[in-house]
Amino acid sequence: MSVSGLPEGDVVTGSFMQAASASSQWILRIEPGFSSQDPVILDIDVKGSSSILHLSLDVGRLSELELITRVRGSGKWFGLLRTGEIGAGAVLNDVVVCLQDEGTLLRVDSIAIGRDAQVRAGTVSSGSERTKADLRYRMGEPGGNLRVLGSILSVDSMHIDHHVEIHHDAPETFSRLTWNSACGGDSRTVGTGMLRVADGSRGADAAQIFHNLLLSADAEADSIPELEVREHEVVGCGHGTANGPIDEDQVFYLESRGFDPSEAKSTLIAAFLNSTLSEMGSDSLHDWLVGLLNSELRTPDA
């Protein structure tokens, strides 16, 4: 992997991470045509004061894979760099689960999506104390299809910041970004999206939406979607954000069905996060993720 695999603008953080992780680069190579029903699970247990890992994904053409990268543990500082090339026609279901108990996570993803490849990139995060993530996807060949999904639960004093950049650099490329953040305590979440459609990407179709569910008066959520469209013949290019507290009408509906207020609230938070979670992968993965988030849900805003 060379720095040239990184999209423009990403070079500073990316090269820093790459240099720092020179001694701990892992390469995950998926043979062309490989197909598996079982997910590949990478468990990362973070320890100590600082550590860094470079994971390089080489997903062969026409392969089919579900990949789960799970970050847990309680290190002070952890850097995760994931670079990848997704081969032509490959189908990748890529879920990153970040649930460290404490510390800071710096994450950089830089993924190049090949011709007609289909990628679902999901992020599930409820920790660490501070998370800064920079996720970049580039569709440099026609027919690429990308779904980016986020289910973020920030509680206590967490600070969770994701920047997602999607580059349409070829015709007939498709992307959707749906990012749901539930924010409680005095936590803060930031979601920024940059959608770039390059000149010549005829028939590109892109949309992004950020939803923030505010669970307490002290929680803060910002989302800033940005568009940069240099091609006229696009199918669609939309973006939006929606912020708000838990819907009182939904609460009343659940209460009229016997849910007490705290059950209603946690059910609605879970439902909100589930809307994106359920798009992330197979049913069994979904069940597992729901269980995981429910255990995080305790009392989000107590």
Partner: peptide, 30 residues
């Protein structure tokens, strides 16, 4: 309201509320 529901009051709403993300099976069981 939830106490009334548990006492046996049920309202079939004129405009039932959608709850995206909450699966019917799960909702009914709870």
């Amino acid at each position: 309201p939830w106490e009334r529901a548990r006492e046996g009051v049920f309202l079939s709403f004129q405009y039932p509320q959608a709850v995206p993300g909450l699966q019917v099976g799960n909702f009914l069981r709870k």
